[in-house]
Design a protein around this nucleic acid. Structure first.
Lengths: 338, 338
DNA sequence: TTGAAAGCGCTAACAT
DNA sequence: ATGTTAGCGCTTTCAA
């Protein structure tokens, strides 16, 4: 079933069928109708490979995903896929491991799949122009910002929350409850990405409240793996048993930390409050329910696609969007009891 | 950068380059080496669209995923992707909603992407030959079996655990602890899929222990959504406060149930034991740690791809593989206290 | 408004 | 062992 079959079936040329398919104006209405009907009847689906071959560019959007284990990112991915499909583009996904190079993965994906655009989902943006030179299609960072890169902001887009501000807000919430010895759990204070930005929010929230930063209260897990977070929390508790609150920069981290707290005999929130950022469904069902700043996951994916398509179709320039979180109060935040 | 450029660069014809690319034997060693070097140097990547166009079939494997929220399926997906890439095939993913029709999604994917083969991940196989007629490429059901379909087993493959046997085993474990009033939580006793198979295992395990099946102990959530599971557990507890153990057919369900138990003032496992199936990473960090039968996720994905490629490349027939789970003892199973 | 024809990059049959 | 060539299905000039 090719365009030729449709053409013969209608008694027109393949050019006409092609015109109808692509919504060109110069087709008589009755001819258009006839062709459309034929397409329906014959269940004709154009061969994308042939289209891609002849067209200057494909309609393929690549997504490089780091962290498929994280339900938060999967939610975003889902909305990306829907938005891409709705715009009649094709999405190709490449999942990479924690230590893989997303720029390299993206570059190779661009070439092998002849991508039109790229979305980096859950990456750790710390790139130089030299490195991203291989990314020769428009790209957008989704769920992280690229603040640390030396790239010109007009060369790419990003959609994320304001990591600094939201972290600040989370810590402030703990401070308002009366906490002073507030620990933070993150991947690394200088990962040049989310961890670092949120760490700054943590530091500044403390400072604004007149609380001195205590390096011992800063726990680095080195990764976002729950096992590492668990261990990091254990170490934290060993060195500082006097903390009354913990800010974990992601829900998964929060869950692992609560487990570690529990294993160490601390009650949450009586002995230690916990707050995190993400808002994955699961946190509604942890015991106790995790208090978290909910990221607008669906909107995040939809916006990433919208911006990318705007750039691709030359409707607009690269932009950087900061979305807001919504506090979902759970049961892990209370006043300090010591 | 096309095959022509490479050919000119090497001073050979495009056919020779093509032969090298496709590993054909009739190329002199020094020529082959020269071409390979050129490919490296020029960073040449063949245009897949052109390949697909000219080849009788593509090298694309489609995956229809129902349930991206489920970390278990994501783990499987990850290993599918790796196996597909390792075999130099391309994976395209289509996520569908809980109520979407995976056969329809698969059929449309086959046509639009000219798939070579299809993997149905996390579906609910209850198909008739009429419905699957649209699936005119080899397909394999991954993580579920298709036991209820009226299809000829030689027409498709499947990779999953033995749902019946593993459910039987889980319930048996509870019985061994001395439990008699064991409830089960599932989507629906007649979903013609995983729920139903595991329900049968539950029933038979009880029967084998001489315990009469009590319909009031069967809780149907109607879906796999955690919210629905939570509600279903609440209803279960309202109607039968005397249960001492609960078998949930998935980890996510287990987590939601534990939350409901906890909210109802039941301690786990003192007042009610819980056991489930899946073994997602997260269950190591729930409070208390969930006891679960761990599915071999990575193996499941790898096997699904292996079988599919065997069929595609005519190395073997359709097969149905049952993998075994491994019990991971958590803290949610204990002896009954009433 | 429509059709004819060129050509996108590649593979494979055929020729040498 | 290597080169030449005919398409694969489609879009897009160009001509009518």
């Amino acid at each position: 079933m090719t365009i030729k079959d449709v053409a013969e079936y209608c008694g027109v040329s393949i050019s006409t069928v092609s015109r109808v398919m692509n919504g060109h104006p110069d087709v008589r209405e009755n001819v258009r109708a006839k062709v459309m009907a034929a397409i329906q009847e014959l269940h004709y689906v154009p061969n994308n490979s042939a289209r891609d071959l002849v067209r200057p560019q494909t309609d393929t959007i690549g997504v490089v995903l780091r962290g498929a284990e994280n339900p938060f990112l999967m939610s975003v991915l889902r909305s990306i896929e829907q938005a891409v499909a709705a715009a009649d583009y094709t999405m190709v996904l490449q999942q990479i491991g924690t230590d893989d190079d997303e720029v390299a993965a993206g570059a190779s994906l661009i070439r092998s799949k002849r991508l039109r655009g790229l979305i980096l989902l859950g990456g750790s943006f710390d790139y130089t122009p030299e490195r991203t030179a291989a990314l020769d299609v428009p790209f957008v960072c989704c769920s992280f910002t690229g603040s640390f890169s030396s790239l010109d902001k007009s060369q790419y887009s990003s959609v994320s929350i304001d990591d600094y501000a939201e972290a600040y807000r989370a810590v402030q919430l703990l401070i308002c409850q009366g906490h002073r010895r507030i620990a933070v759990l993150l991947g690394s204070v200088q990962d040049h990405s989310i961890s670092e930005l949120r760490y700054r929010g943590y530091c500044d929230a403390l400072r604004a409240a007149g609380i001195e930063l205590d390096p011992e209260l800063v726990a680095e897990s080195g990764s976002f793996e729950m096992a590492d977070v668990y261990t990091a929390t254990q170490h934290l508790l060993e060195r500082r048993s006097d903390i009354t609150a913990l800010f974990t920069i992601s829900d998964l981290m929060g869950i692992a930390s609560i487990k570690a707290l529990h294993s160490a005999g601390r009650r949450v929130p009586e002995d230690c409050s916990v707050i995190s950022i993400d808002g994955i469904e699961m946190t509604r069902y942890t015991v106790p329910t995790l208090t978290t700043l909910v990221q607008p996951r669906r909107q995040m994916g939809a916006e990433a696609v919208r911006i990318l398509l705007d750039v691709l179709e030359e409707r607009g320039p690269h932009t950087h969007i900061r979305l807001e979180t919504a506090l979902r109060e759970g049961e892990t935040v209370g006043a300090p009891n010591h």
